[in-house]
Design a protein around this nucleic acid. Sequence first.
DNA 1: ATGCCTTGCAAGCATACACTTGCATACATC
DNA 2: GATGTATGCAAGTGTATGCTTGCAAGGCAT
Lengths: 191, 191
Amino acid sequence: MDIRTRILKAAADVYASTGFRGATTRRIAQEAGCNEITLFRHFGSKACLLHEAVRCAGMEIAPTTLPDPPRSPRAELSDWAHRQHQHLLEKRSIIRTCMGEVEEHPEIFPTADGATDHAALGLTTYLAGLKAHKLTAVDFDEGAAAAMLIGVLFADAMGRDIMPKLFPAKPEQAVTRYVDLFLRAIGAVKQ
Amino acid sequence: MDIRTRILKAAADVYASTGFRGATTRRIAQEAGCNEITLFRHFGSKACLLHEAVRCAGMEIAPTTLPDPPRSPRAELSDWAHRQHQHLLEKRSIIRTCMGEVEEHPEIFPTADGATDHAALGLTTYLAGLKAHKLTAVDFDEGAAAAMLIGVLFADAMGRDIMPKLFPAKPEQAVTRYVDLFLRAIGAVKQ
DNA sequence: ATGCCTTGCAAGCATACACTTGCATACATC
DNA sequence: GATGTATGCAAGTGTATGCTTGCAAGGCAT
């Protein structure tokens, strides 16, 4: 692997587990298996390195999309939710660290082009499509509904390892149940 | 105010905005308006001080309870949800910091006696009561439902200031909509 | 072979940190 | 008045950190 890539990965890992202050240049260099100076030669400063490392770590996402003409809400939403949850679960460490430091280092937080915003937009559009195609029996606010589904997926992925009482079920089972509840909440027509 | 209390409050504030490493004894002392040594004389070490400060900051909670024989699900759940959300919103800073550092400092994270666990238990019990009293039209998993409502309240409170696209509505309006969706999800009987 | 480019090594610098020591000052209780 | 207790001030210790400097070793193209 390229040394630059190795450094970026090491920086993201160390940052995820120790935060900005804890991610010392010495430790990142050790984790990357290179000399400390090489970091500075490549990225100039610790701040620039971490900034880019977090940006790249967030960019690895393969954004799951929902079909444009919705056909089978249950199947499509279930598939989408499981993928989103899986992704959040894998990245939970760096996401939690980023969120914990967003007030001190807002510039390091991937905001506008973040995956979550993208996911929210996609889901909202999909839900609007559901209504347009008469696949729901009741009226509801797409924005609130999207926030609700994404919210519970997010909270579950962030909290299940540290608050096991709140999320006792296994990940896949839990997500399936969330989707079930969600479908009923938006009055999805059974197929 | 007692100096000990002042120090604890200052420690919690500084910790909430800068994390464990960022919460230097100098800055805490400055924030508390006392000498740095006083911290050590009272609490022995920075770790002990922060541990107790976070514990106390989390303990300030006035845990909102749900009525035992449920009567009006919409009114009761709405009231409860708004209170929970308000509380999470007020404490979002320290909660985010705690979550971001839970892997590095698990001992500082208020777990078992935490408010969230308590809230989850109370809500689960309430939902079971709803089913027992035939106030719901469909069957559902109380645990998953509780996680869903708490999850979205949590995600909203943690994320609305840093991901405004995901949570565009005003807090109270958003919570009301979550509760509406939730009531439909659990098939709550209209009253 | 020469020169360039990347990387490594050793050492160091200025700063900040947690924490300690010694001493002085106030205040309250006896 | 004497004594103990809580707090403050000044100074310092050892360590860690971000970052720099100087120099050498290796690969690679000309």
